[in-house]
């Protein structure tokens, strides 16, 4: 099936780049947090990484549906937090950037007359808003209880290794 405009495939590829970038970033953050002894926060980054990968998967399928070529080679810069707080702050910024990017893409698709792809972008806007909201709440919690208090909650000494 042909898209109403080649621009639609470009927008989908830009979204794909974003999703692949955060998939990788969150995956690394997850494993670094595990390694630092903070597996509860690590699990959240892990789950979000998988979520973002599923977004990438759906975008790839949509590009193929439009007989376009999904660009899996292009990645944005992977910015790695050196502390848990920095990881949360970076994730918050990137989720907000996603909301902005996908809102713009939805608008462009509406203007081009592709309401189906616009609806897909709108759905992603809501996903990324929820992600941004969660990260914002973590940063607020850190403001309230202090970083030590917050990080103490991310330890899980009850799970034996290898299980």
């Amino acid at each position: 099936m042909q898209p109403v405009s080649p621009r639609v495939v470009e927008l989908l590829n830009e979204a794909l780049t974003f999703e692949l970038t955060v998939t990788n970033t969150y995956f690394l953050h997850a494993r670094m947090l595990d390694n630092w002894g903070l597996p509860k926060l690590g699990k959240v980054f892990y789950a979000l990484s998988i979520d973002e990968m599923k977004d990438a998967d759906a975008i790839i399928n949509r590009i193929l549906m439009f007989e376009g070529h999904p660009n899996l080679q292009r990645l944005g810069n992977i910015t790695v937090g050196e502390t848990p707080e920095e990881m949360l702050a970076l994730a918050y910024e990137s989720e907000k950037a996603a909301v902005k990017q996908f809102n713009g893409a939805a608008q462009e698709c509406h203007d081009l007359g592709d309401h189906g792809t616009a609806a897909v972008f709108e759905e992603y806007v809501r996903d990324e808003e929820q992600h941004a909201e969660w990260f914002e709440a973590q940063l607020e919690a850190i403001q309230r209880v202090g970083v030590q208090g917050y990080l103490a909650q991310q330890i899980d000494a009850s799970t034996p290794p290898g299980s």
Partner: peptide, 8 residues
């Protein structure tokens, strides 16, 4: 924040 992964 690390952004150069080749040279860390």
């Amino acid at each position: 924040m690390i952004f150069c992964h080749c040279a860390v």
